[in-house]
Design a protein around this nucleic acid. Sequence first.
DNA 1: TTGTACGCGTTATCAA
DNA 2: TTGATAACGCGTACAA
Lengths: 346, 346
Amino acid sequence: MITIKEIARQLNLSTTTVSNVIHGKTGEVSQATIDRVERFVREVDYVPNISARNLATNSSKIIGVVLKSQTYKYVSILMDPFVSELISGIEERLREHGYFMMLYISDDIAEILKHVSTWNVDGLILFYMLDDDGIRVSEKYAKPVVCIDTYCGEGLQHFVNIGLEDAKGMHDVTQYLISMGHRKIGFLSDNNVNVDNARFRGYRTALREAGIEYSDRNFFLLRPERDEIDRSLAQLVEKARDFTAVACVSDLYAVLFMDALRDHGIRVPEDLSVTGFDDNLYARLHRPALTTVHQDVAARGRLAAQTLIDILQGNPPARREIQAKVSLVVRDTVMPVEKIDKTRSE
Amino acid sequence: MITIKEIARQLNLSTTTVSNVIHGKTGEVSQATIDRVERFVREVDYVPNISARNLATNSSKIIGVVLKSQTYKYVSILMDPFVSELISGIEERLREHGYFMMLYISDDIAEILKHVSTWNVDGLILFYMLDDDGIRVSEKYAKPVVCIDTYCGEGLQHFVNIGLEDAKGMHDVTQYLISMGHRKIGFLSDNNVNVDNARFRGYRTALREAGIEYSDRNFFLLRPERDEIDRSLAQLVEKARDFTAVACVSDLYAVLFMDALRDHGIRVPEDLSVTGFDDNLYARLHRPALTTVHQDVAARGRLAAQTLIDILQGNPPARREIQAKVSLVVRDTVMPVEKIDKTRSE
DNA sequence: TTGTACGCGTTATCAA
DNA sequence: TTGATAACGCGTACAA
């Protein structure tokens, strides 16, 4: 691998001049030398040594993408289609701007912070980090941080969050169910904090606006742990017999729930209407195709990366909370309630 | 961030001694200083600067994972569940051994090679690279390379490939179809080279062993391009009326095909038996659940990473071609042919 | 317009 | 048992 020093020697120039030409600081270099250097650099296929450059500039061109490894739903968090799509968007935008992505998958915040500082990472993108972890990062780490789907509480004032219209999306899809005549509408999730809570609030608001009463029985709480999920689904299927529709917090849960329903002889949408949230591959591949709330995940990834790059270049966004748009996608899992009552098998 | 030099100054020692203690080269250091240094290092939370270390050792702890971005099937190659799972396996094993993963997604081999040499990457994992690209990498790049699903031809003698029992898997599932009485069995794929060709050969072998004749009409060639796929699927559905079973080259295609069948009123498995290959989430989530060939993708990712680490530590594997095991998974998309004949709706 | 010389943090080779 | 000191390749202030 050829070095700047060697190029300078062969061209009978100083390393400064060569370096200046390579970096386009050609204000004080004669056109003749510029040409000479540029031609030679191309010829010998010069590639800078990033380690040396990082050492000299006290920076890296690395953006750390931090994922918590703990997950019930998949073997690895990388297998969550949401995460994959997000990363693909982040990666694309970072690459366009000459940054590199380093993935940190761990539950141990201390370990992550160690890596981040050994590599002298220029900025961080955090995904779905809970409040206290975020605060620990924020204390130890002075560089720009962009979060995704993290409802940043106090103490994270200098974080930027790339959120989503969670409440609006769930409100719209619930309202759609109501417009189809449904009044006994359940909400299915595995928790009720952060993103899930925002979606729940959208659901509640839609009910309230329509004058429909809510009770705790409406909450379909799924236990997602590997050895609990089947039993939990079976219970929720039984519970569903008292409802005409269930709005699920995610497409994955909607699909799992629909399959459980089918296994117990309850047809979707003839016996029960079901909706999802996210509009990922599951929603599109499943039959009947899922009525759901669309979000453009890759675009959010790009947005997160872009926001971080902007901050690094001295252009912080106007607001600390950015919300990406959602839209309702009507497919085949919702039926008007009058038809349901007619065909109901019980 | 505290440096070795600073530690040495505060402790009234030389950087050499501090560095030696940190690296456990304590053969020639007194116990007293060892303790003193170790305590201090822990106290000030010393973290090495990787850039400086890489510069000094002329190596990095980075493994490059190279993916070709070109893909019809997904927005980004990262969204292929196979790729996600593979990466998760690679990442896990690399992290366990103190290596870091850097993802390179591009179609431009030259660009990838440039990145690889700027970062002074210690080794490379290539996924599904075609022969000529592999050769170009091999020429410019002297460090260890492990391929995944790349049928390495000549000129890639120093590459190791982590393959799969593709032929055996397809042979077994085809044989299973035959054992259920099927004789009119199609093979669905979008090409017939490399992995797909190996699977095709397994299919052919099973037919031959059973004395079943094969003609080009048996090949269900899918056009996967975004604006072609629907028409292509419709044609294949029509074609399927002359068959009792179709063995698909992948779960994704099996699922897409089954949905197209359903949309055209052909039931699976009552009217047509369908099988897949890979046993990913699609196969498990789809209803009817897909009969398919199981492979443990994450395990292959770990194996690839482990093989590369072994090579880096001076323990190259005995064989250049390693084949991971597969096994048949019987679920609900295959029916004995006699039942099909009875219920056939045409 | 070009060149010299030093610092970045670490490792490694010697010498003490 | 420990310590100077020279690399590693690059960027840059300052000098010429």
